[in-house]
Simulated scan of single mutants.
Amino acid sequence: MNKHSQHLELDRVDIHKLLDDIVDSPELFGLKNAHDSYWDTCQGLCADDIDSYVWWDKTHLTGGVHRLIANSILKAGSLAPETYLEDSVNVQELINQTTHTKFKSPKYKGAKSTGEINRIIEKLKQEKKEKAKENEAEEIEEMTALSGLLKNNKPDRGRFMPLRNMDSEV
């Protein structure tokens, strides 16, 4: 991409390798626990610093690891002046300072529930009940027809009756 866009300066940062290094040697990065998640271990009740863990839960990284990733991107070595996010910076405070800030993404607000999904589920349940009633009615009809055949059986029915040989003269 650098060949086609000379005005851009791109740096590659191998985040996957960085995470492998963090998990393999958390103490090198100032972390305490790389194997257990903060939420599973503490449930918010222990005195451990959340940023001393790698994992917040089974799939999400803690803010401390996000800070490490951000700093590795900032130190990637582009032509831009080097910047660093100090540990003392309270990101939450920066976010809460104003409503329009470069540190805050717009909040997504989902549309109010219309109840359409509940209506579809009820409709599917009703259709399932109706189909079950139809199947039950068909089974009753079949059983009635079979019982009618059994009731109308004549005593000779089912007995072996030899056919008369038409070729022989008797």
Score class of each variant (00 low, 15 high):
81 P>T: 12
58 K>S: 15
60 H>D: 04
4 H>Y: 14
124 L>E: 13
123 K>F: 09
135 N>V: 01
60 H>Y: 06
116 E>W: 05
80 A>I: 05
132 A>K: 08
88 S>W: 09
5 S>A: 14
9 E>V: 06
93 E>I: 05
152 N>P: 00
21 D>H: 03
53 Y>E: 05
64 G>C: 07
99 T>L: 09
114 T>A: 05
132 A>R: 08
52 S>D: 12
114 T>R: 04
49 D>Y: 05
52 S>E: 12
52 S>A: 13
86 E>C: 08
66 H>L: 11
65 V>K: 00
84 Y>G: 03
15 I>T: 13
9 E>C: 12
109 K>G: 08
76 A>I: 03
20 D>F: 02
44 G>K: 03
81 P>Y: 02
154 K>T: 14
2 N>S: 15
161 M>N: 12
3 K>F: 07
83 T>R: 14
164 R>Y: 11
37 S>A: 14
117 I>G: 07
112 K>E: 15
19 L>M: 10
87 D>L: 09
2 N>R: 14
59 T>F: 08
168 S>N: 09
112 K>Y: 08
164 R>V: 11
11 D>I: 12
153 N>I: 14
105 S>A: 12
147 S>P: 00
28 L>P: 00
116 E>A: 15
7 H>C: 10
88 S>N: 07
81 P>I: 03
16 H>E: 12
163 L>Q: 10
152 N>K: 09
71 N>R: 07
58 K>F: 05
35 H>D: 05
30 G>E: 05
96 N>A: 15
96 N>P: 01
59 T>H: 04
101 T>A: 03
68 L>C: 01
50 I>N: 03
116 E>K: 11
138 E>P: 00
112 K>G: 09
89 V>N: 04
133 K>I: 06
56 W>Y: 12
18 L>Y: 02
89 V>R: 01
99 T>A: 10
97 Q>S: 15
60 H>M: 06
157 R>Y: 11
32 K>T: 13
57 D>C: 08
89 V>Q: 01
32 K>E: 09
89 V>S: 00
102 K>G: 13
76 A>S: 15
9 E>W: 14
77 G>N: 07
14 D>Q: 06
115 G>H: 13
78 S>G: 13
99 T>W: 03
13 V>K: 01
93 E>G: 06
59 T>V: 11
43 Q>A: 10
141 E>T: 04
35 H>Q: 10
124 L>T: 12
102 K>C: 09
41 T>D: 06
159 R>G: 14
25 S>V: 01
112 K>A: 15
81 P>Q: 06
152 N>G: 10
153 N>K: 07
145 A>S: 11
15 I>L: 01
104 K>Y: 03
77 G>T: 04
55 W>N: 03
127 E>L: 10
141 E>F: 11
155 P>G: 02
69 I>F: 02
64 G>W: 00
70 A>Q: 03
105 S>W: 12
30 G>Y: 05
92 Q>M: 02
160 F>S: 11
163 L>H: 05
18 L>H: 02
109 K>P: 05
111 A>E: 15
84 Y>W: 08
168 S>L: 13
43 Q>P: 06
101 T>M: 03
35 H>V: 03
162 P>F: 12
38 Y>K: 04
8 L>Y: 10
166 M>R: 14
64 G>R: 00
19 L>W: 00
44 G>Q: 08
170 V>P: 00
18 L>C: 02
163 L>T: 08
